[in-house]
């Protein structure tokens, strides 16, 4: 290890710029970030997810997520083959009753699956950063809100901890922080994306199954992706304006 070389290198412009971005302050204070220029969301490419749990661990590290609670988690779906008895009767519809597991939110990955029948896939979940979010609608005091750049945030210095937002989220993305006693949830790594970094879960995903997208950026690859792929959001019947886009989402996912 050539420490001195690296110590010298850290002063070089490239490192300095990267470093400064990390340490930059508030979004409006950092000159190159304007809230009105962004509208954040995320793309989840289900066929790419291998269920390693890197995102869950990274999120916990980045955001000090307490054990047993999750800002993001991964579910493993197993949609069995069409079940029929010997006399030819159908017993259940696997589209309606898939087998789902998420041991400790998938933080340490998943047990090896040996049953080759049916169809398996992993579904990473997190806050959908809905444009018409039911959780911000119900907050009695305005402690949770959609930021001008489309991120659903919690003002933890103002939150009462009434948990009404937890009840209102159709996706189970919120929880009450056990020691802070306020609502807590995915911030889409707001402290990172406002500094030009991607989210911790995207940074840590080894297969690129998660992509932070900026819908207001015309150069964002999401626009091309949406044109060429079959993309769905979770529980579209909830009409939440979810901005968590799933590629190749199976109908059994809820």
């Amino acid at each position: 290890m050539n420490i001195t070389r690296r110590q010298m290198l850290i002063l070089l412009p490239a490192a300095a710029v990267a470093w400064e971005a990390v340490l930059a302050g508030t979004p409006e204070a950092s000159s190159n970030y304007k809230m009105s220029d962004h509208w954040w969301g995320m793309l989840i490419d289900i066929p790419k997810c291998i269920g390693c749990g890197n995102c869950v661990r990274a999120c916990q590290t980045e955001n000090d997520v307490p054990d047993g609670h999750f800002r993001t988690w991964v579910e493993r779906y197993h949609r069995s083959d069409w079940p029929m008895t010997e006399s030819g009767e159908v017993t259940a519809n696997p589209l309606i009753v898939p087998e789902v597991i998420s041991p400790d939110g998938g933080k340490e990955g998943f047990p090896v699956a040996t049953d080759e029948s049916g169809k398996y896939f992993f579904v990473p979940k997190m806050c959908n950063h809905c444009a018409d979010s039911p959780c911000t609608q119900v907050c009695p005091v305005g402690a949770t809100f959609i930021s001008p750049d489309g991120v659903v945030l919690v003002d933890q210095t103002y939150c009462l901890g009434c948990a009404y937002c937890v009840q209102a989220c159709p996706y189970g993305c919120r929880y009450i922080h056990p020691t802070k006693e306020v609502a807590d949830k995915c911030t889409l790594c707001y402290h990172r994306i406002t500094k030009g970094l991607t989210t911790a879960c995207c940074e840590a995903c080894p297969t690129g199954a998660r992509q932070l997208v900026d819908l207001k950026d015309p150069k964002d690859p999401i626009h091309e992706f949406l044109k060429t792929h079959s993309v769905q959001v979770l529980k579209p019947q909830m009409a939440t304006g979810a901005k968590l886009f799933y590629n190749d989402l199976d109908g059994s996912v809820r």
Binding site: V138, P140, C162, V182
Partner: peptide, 22 residues
């Protein structure tokens, strides 16, 4: 039941018009 009972006056000071609870 609130996590922060002493913040409850916020319901009077800044009631959120779209919230049934406010």
């Amino acid at each position: 039941h609130l996590g922060h009972p002493f913040r409850s006056p916020e319901m009077y000071f800044t009631p959120h018009s779209t919230s049934a609870m406010a």
